[in-house]
């Protein structure tokens, strides 16, 4: 049980951390100033959530590690972030379609997690729900805008969806940790979210004139810490200073 709670919290923390790391690559490079500020704000929220989750994971692990130890001193075969989060940002359409898929899931997920019997997770989740409500409004409105804007924006959006869709299946994958914690009233049963998610995403895609790629194949691996080649580079960059100065405090 204790291990399951650690694994579960770590997975959520890693997913938030890597997504925020990707989003923060846009800071200073957004398509226009207001949007640069908005996306940076979203990255900040998600980093904040990552910090809270990893802090709690470290506590549950009980080996005296901190959230920074978890973020900066693990290798890619010890990271459990969803594969969708480590995919490159691509253009703004791809970033927004990826974000809409995640936001739609996260709002459903964290709304449920806010009812968890684990009060720390419930607390982090209820704070997150407020933030994700805004994130979802933001990404959904860009998807609709791109889908109905110009020919170019639509074709970029469809291309982004084609590239990212195969990573959406993993959102709903469960393992032993999920089942252990569902029994305890701690974790969210992801099966119960799937129908709602599909409904909302389909509705969004219809509004944006998008066609869901025909391929039914879905990528997997993150539950076993198996990743694409991208994660290695993300970690090499993110962890470089602490790894170079392992005894230093920052």
């Amino acid at each position: 049980m204790k291990d399951s709670l650690y694994n579960y919290t770590l997975r959520l923390g890693d997913t938030s951390l890597i997504l925020a790391q990707r989003l923060s690559e846009w800071t200073g490079h957004g398509p226009f100033l207001e949007e640069d500020l908005a996306l940076t704000n979203i990255a900040l929220d998600i980093f904040g959530r990552a910090k809270g989750l990893l802090e709690y994971a470290a506590k549950k692990e009980g080996k005296g590690r901190t959230e920074d130890d978890l973020a900066f001193f693990r290798s890619d075969r010890e990271f459990f972030n969803l594969l969708i989060t480590e995919q490159p940002n691509g253009d703004y359409a791809k970033t927004m379609i990826r974000q809409s898929i995640i936001d739609c899931f996260d709002l459903l997920f964290y709304t449920e997690l806010a009812k968890s019997k684990d009060l720390t997770l419930a607390g982090i989740a209820s704070k997150s729900v407020k933030e994700i409500t805004y994130h979802k409004r933001h990404s959904f409105s860009w998807v609709v805008r791109f889908g109905n804007g110009t020919e170019e924006s639509f074709s970029r959006l469809q291309k982004g969806l084609n590239e990212i869709w195969a990573y959406s299946g993993e959102l709903f994958e469960m393992n032993e940790d999920d089942h252990n914690l569902i029994k305890e009233g701690i974790a969210v049963d992801l099966d119960s979210l799937k129908q709602k998610w599909e409904l909302e995403i389909k509705e969004l895609f219809e509004k944006a004139n998008l066609v869901i790629p025909e391929t039914l194949f879905m990528q997997q691996g993150s539950r076993k810490a198996l990743h694409s080649e991208y994660l290695g580079y993300i970690l090499a960059e993110m962890q470089s200073i602490p790894r170079m100065h392992p005894n230093a405090k920052w």
Binding site: S24, A43, G48, E67
Partner: peptide
Amino acid sequence: ITRAPSLRAKLILL
């Protein structure tokens, strides 16, 4: 930003 050496430092810099 992508290389800030702690999560706190990253949040502050961002």
